[in-house]
Lab assay of single mutants.
Amino acid sequence: GGTTSGLGELPSGWEQRFTPEGRAYFVDHNTRTTTWVDPRRQQ
């Protein structure tokens, strides 16, 4: 941990993952979708 950059926890059902290249993306298990956009930035 320690790399949350002050955004806090992800919404319920979300998970942060990384591509083999090390790029972060976000998985929404509620809708079984993925996005490059941090859901915390859409609030």
Rank of each mutant, 00 (worst) to 15 (best):
L10F: 11
T35F: 00
Q43G: 15
G1V: 12
W14S: 02
G8V: 10
V37Y: 15
V37W: 10
W36L: 07
L10R: 02
V27I: 07
R17N: 09
T33G: 04
V27W: 05
R17T: 09
L7Q: 11
T31P: 00
P39Y: 00
F18A: 10
L10S: 02
G13L: 03
G13W: 03
L7R: 09
G1F: 04
A24L: 11
G1L: 05
G13Y: 01
Q43S: 12
G8T: 09
L7H: 10
R23F: 11
F18S: 10
D38N: 06
T31Q: 08
T35G: 03
G22N: 15
V37C: 12
T3M: 12
E9V: 10
Y25H: 02
D38W: 01
R40A: 04
L10C: 04
W14P: 00
P11L: 01
R32Q: 12
F26E: 02
F18H: 14
T35M: 03
P39T: 01
Q16G: 06
T33H: 03
L7G: 09
N30Y: 07
G13S: 04
T33N: 06
G8H: 12
R17Q: 12
W36K: 04
R41E: 15
T3R: 10
G8D: 13
W36Y: 15
R17G: 08
R23G: 12
G2I: 12
G22H: 07
Y25E: 02
D28A: 01
D28G: 00
T31M: 07
S5E: 15
L7A: 12
G22L: 06
G2F: 09
L7M: 14
W36D: 07
R40P: 04
L7N: 13
T31H: 15
E15Y: 02
S12P: 13
R32L: 07
T31S: 10
T33Y: 05
L7V: 12
V37F: 13
P39R: 00
T3F: 11
S12I: 08
T34I: 01
Y25P: 00
T34D: 01
S12W: 06
Q43V: 13
P39G: 00
G1A: 12
